[in-house]
Amino acid sequence: MPDLQVATRRVAEVVVVEPKGFINAHTVAEFEGVLNALVEAGDVRIVISGAHLSYVASAGFGAIMGLIEEARAGGGDIRVAALTGTVAHIFRVLGFDRLCRTFETEGEAVLSFGGH
């Protein structure tokens, strides 16, 4: 089984990105490549579902940080949902809850784009 698999699903105007595995400096290119491709294609309403992540190192959070303003400039955003355990803890201790909107569930995150 690969260290990281990144699937995407479209839910109305929102793209849900679902990484499975872990994100570190070795695997981040896969994750970042998917995010980059979406933003470059104008798919800037993005929800990252963290339900199947075992851990995320700073490289993974850096990928979000490097693209979130680009997504916002295009009228969208990168939002995060379903973080658990160590991933949720690291998200908070890095202060990402102040940079990036987070939701308990993927559904809530998708619906949050409704009025935009």
Partner: peptide, 12 residues
């Protein structure tokens, strides 16, 4: 983080 994000930085 806000400044790093505005500068499109991915590291640090």
């Amino acid at each position: 983080l806000g400044r790093l994000a505005r500068e499109r930085r991915r590291g640090g």
